[in-house]
Computed example of a mutant assay.
Amino acid sequence: MKHRIVVLGAGYAGAYVAGNLARRLSPKDTEITVVNAVPDFVQRMRLHQLAAGRDIEAPKLADVFAGTGIRLRLARVTAVDPKRQIVAVANADGGGELGYDTLVYALGSHGADRGVPGAAEHAFDVSARPSALRLRERLDSPGGRGEGGSVVVVGDGLTGIEAATEIAETRPGLSVALIARGELGARLSAGARSHLRRACDRLGVTVLEHTSVEAVEATRVLCADGAALASDATVWTAGFAVSPIAAAGGLEVTGNGQIVVDRTMRSVSHPNVYAIGDSAYAIGDNGRPLPMSCASAGYTGRQAIEAIVGRLTGRKIANTKLVYTYNHVSLGRRDGILQTVDDEGQAKPKYKGGRTPARVKAGILKMALWATSHPTYGMPKRKHRLAGAPDASREMALA
């Protein structure tokens, strides 16, 4: 009987891990199923660009996994039962269950409204493609391309900064404001913060620092200091949250719902479950939790691949790097910031700003898409058989 591997989620982390497992494990012994709610691969790191009006490629997952032997199940995950080793799913045709021997949990994260009244009803986020497309439609009206309208971006994390600057550059007829709870670019070095301020000034982005939002209405944002900002489109980037499914299923999680894993990305409470990407609470090589980011998705994904392949084939498990060394921020299409960080996660004094970081970031995005869209690249002629599986010579003798 084949070993059943089920991967939940086909974002950067899930698609990458599924493709690599298909490359390295023999289909004679393993069966890999990927469960994803939508049929397309979503370039989440570029959703702010999609919202602003750029055309972003969205490859069909059926094409991405063609030739790999991976089974694609288009459905929404509704529950995980690690005791029974079952995943419950639902789609337009109804519900169902999938059994697994090894589960890779890669459901990622989504925008969190933090309980702010009106944020869920009236604000847009750029963590999911449907919401990004709705924001794009709003920016296109009224008056064609939203001329004369106002946009308020709440949250000055990296996502908020990228969204505000991209919208301002792509749609110069709009008035764009960015609300920061503290100092703008607080995670950056002094030099990088100055570069960011110059970029906002150049693009006409109004920055409101040390400002908290108390409520979001259909046409305005209400601040704690009593200010009311007119807003035809409010973009909410003030934090992210993970799905409650892992906690509801009994997996050991942190207070925010991330699955607690060991150094190999294995759940500390259920050893046949691995968590990667934003869903995982993983401790990096610096002794600190890895932040939610695409970089963390890559590092945790690579470690999970080594652990799963090693344990199933009886090979030694290699420890891959678990690091977070820089923040790469796009400031529109022709400007950016590359900010390195130290082992404490603090920004180093030196940074790079301008066109070169923008080009490097664009290259990273293209490479991430290519790597995900070509999971068969480098497919070995001989794949690893599972530990204890009969070897080829014995199979031929018995045939």
Rank of each mutant, 00 (worst) to 15 (best):
G301T: 06
G354S: 03
S231E: 12
G310Q: 01
V309R: 01
V151Q: 01
S150M: 04
K361D: 14
R202L: 03
I86Q: 13
E252R: 10
E97S: 12
G11W: 04
A218R: 12
G353F: 11
V126E: 07
V80N: 03
K83V: 15
V260Q: 03
G160H: 11
H210R: 12
I32Q: 02
L331P: 02
S393Q: 11
R302F: 09
G11E: 01
I167K: 08
A368R: 05
A112E: 14
V151R: 02
T170H: 14
S393R: 14
A186H: 15
G204H: 04
S109I: 02
A275S: 07
G226M: 07
H3T: 13
A186L: 13
R288G: 13
H270C: 07
A79L: 12
P244M: 01
R193G: 15
E306K: 06
G204K: 04
N91L: 07
L158R: 05
V205Y: 11
A275K: 02
A180S: 15
Y16G: 13
A177T: 15
A79C: 12
G143A: 13
T211N: 07
K348W: 02
R202W: 03
F124Y: 15
V80Y: 06
Q346T: 07
G332E: 09
L229R: 10
S131I: 00
A119P: 05
D335A: 12
A389F: 00
G287M: 08
S109Q: 05
I276V: 15
L312I: 03
A10T: 01
Y12K: 03
V360H: 14
A247I: 01
L47A: 00
E344W: 11
S150C: 10
S189L: 00
T320R: 15
A387R: 14
T254H: 11
V242T: 03
A233K: 04
R315C: 05
G191F: 07
G108D: 08
A163W: 05
M379A: 08
D343K: 14
A66R: 08
A128K: 12
A192R: 04
L338G: 06
P142N: 07
S279R: 01
G388D: 10
I276K: 06
V38C: 10
D335E: 11
V154S: 05
D278E: 02
P291M: 09
C294I: 04
G388F: 04
R385H: 12
G157S: 14
G287D: 10
K381R: 15
P142E: 10
G255I: 04
V35R: 12
A66W: 00
G144Q: 09
T211C: 12
G67V: 01
V268Q: 01
P117A: 07
I364W: 13
D140E: 15
E214M: 08
T159C: 08
L174D: 03
P357N: 09
E137H: 11
A120E: 11
A218D: 08
G94S: 12
T340C: 08
N272H: 15
I86C: 09
R129H: 06
Q49K: 14
R138W: 09
A22C: 09
R138V: 12
L8T: 07
M1E: 10
S267N: 03
I276C: 02
E147F: 11
S330W: 05
G146Y: 02
G155R: 09
